[in-house]
């Protein structure tokens, strides 16, 4: 197994774990954690391709990860704000019970 393959497999595994968690868990915060894990898996792919791919001097993969980390921070902040505001309205963070459009 080449180093690139092992990195990509780790990333695929991480993505799957995040996806399974985001689909299966009831709590909205855990869904958000799952999404964060999937984002991280994508970042790992970018870094692995930067390291082992052609033309690493351009730093494109690395730049993408730097911006992706910035976007993920913004995403977490807004997502958690939504969860907190939702919790205030209906007193639960359980996504199964959030099924009405009335608010």
């Amino acid at each position: 197994m080449t180093p690139l393959t092992s990195c990509l497999l780790l990333s695929a595994l991480l993505f799957t774990i995040g996806l399974a968690g985001a689909l299966m868990r009831r709590n909205a915060i855990l869904v958000l954690i799952g999404i964060e894990l999937m984002l991280n898996a994508a970042n790992l792919n970018f870094i692995a391709f930067w390291r082992y791919g052609p033309n690493p001097e351009a730093l494109t993969g690395m730049m993408f990860v730097i911006f992706s980390i910035g976007v993920a921070a913004a995403e977490a902040a807004v997502g958690l704000a939504l969860i907190i505001s939702l919790y205030r309205h209906i007193k639960t963070a359980n996504i199964d019970e959030v099924n009405s459009m009335r608010g």
Binding site: L23, M24, R25, R26, N27, I29, L32, I33, E36, A72, A73, A76, A77, L80, I83, I84, Y87, K91, T92, A93, N94, I95, D96
Partner: peptide, 24 residues
Amino acid sequence: AVAILIVFAVLLTRDSEASPLAIV
């Protein structure tokens, strides 16, 4: 930043520890 943000959100929305079913 992100982990601490999530921790704050967990403490602000604590009801999940009592819920019997953790998965959908």
